[in-house]
């Protein structure tokens, strides 16, 4: 088995890392960095994690336990960070309702619940490894993220939110979460399916690409009607 990644995987990885930087650069250039601080910090940390993973890969090799340790732990931390970024999008949408306190409380309870559920699943298995818990937590958080994004999209349609940038950020996050949740599920259904290894990093590039576009293309005060975006005309 190869102890390094192929050219195609390396190219996708490099592209993803560049796009993560591009998001922060676009947000700073268009004065949206502070408005969507958590999203931008997530992208910046993703960039740092990419660099860290590359260091681990070049020092220890793809099959090493050290690389796997770095990979899965950083993935769990990033997923939690993305979950928090999603919660800040909730705060943007419910800004005028003054329900900030309740959204934060619900987010913490949900995160703790997901962690406990993941712990419970790992506890029942034969290999009670911490790495299994981290993997399980990431997988469950992707699905929770998908459900939360779906609810947020429903709220956007119901409240007739019109901020184009916010709509684009939420929709691209929805595509990202659902694509990753589907990929994780596919991996569980067919553990030997090789193509999943390539699909996941490609999906990973889509989120920074869409966010960079949203920051670059749309001014923060641009508006659009959500009535056009629902699958069922409203």
């Amino acid at each position: 088995m190869p102890d390094s990644i192929g050219y195609a995987q390396a190219a996708i990885w490099f592209l993803g890392t560049i796009l993560e930087v591009a998001v922060v650069v676009c947000a700073v250039t268009r004065h949206s960095f502070r408005r969507y601080l958590c999203l931008n910090l997530y992208m910046f940390f993703s960039f740092l994690v990419s660099v860290g993973r590359y260091q681990a890969l070049s020092h220890f090799g793809l099959r090493s336990s050290e690389y796997k340790f770095v990979y899965y732990y950083s993935d769990a931390v990033l997923t939690i960070f993305l979950y928090l970024a999603l919660i800040t999008l909730y705060l943007h949408v419910f800004d005028e309702m003054k329900v900030e306190k309740y959204v934060r409380l619900a987010a913490v309870i949900l995160l703790a619940g997901t962690a406990l559920f993941s712990y419970g699943v790992v506890q029942q298995s034969q290999h009670r490894m911490l790495t299994s818990f981290v993997y399980e937590l990431s997988q469950n958080l992707y699905f929770v993220g998908l459900v939360l994004t779906y609810l947020l999209w429903g709220a956007i349609l119901k409240l007739r939110e019109t901020r184009t940038q916010l709509i684009q950020l939420v929709l691209s996050l929805g595509v990202y979460f659902s694509a990753f949740a589907a990929t994780f599920a596919l991996e569980n259904m067919f553990p030997k399916l090789e193509s999943v290894t390539y699909i996941a990093p490609v999906f990973g590039c889509l989120l920074p690409l869409a966010w960079a576009y949203a920051f670059w293309r749309f001014p923060h005060d641009a508006r659009m009607s959500t009535a056009r975006l629902a699958m069922v005309p409203r």
Partner: peptide, 17 residues
């Protein structure tokens, strides 16, 4: 089940996006 739900959500988000 997760795969089917995720795929349906992916389709809907992709169309809206």
């Amino acid at each position: 089940l997760i795969f089917l739900l995720s795929a349906a959500a992916l389709l809907q988000f992709f169309i809206s996006y």
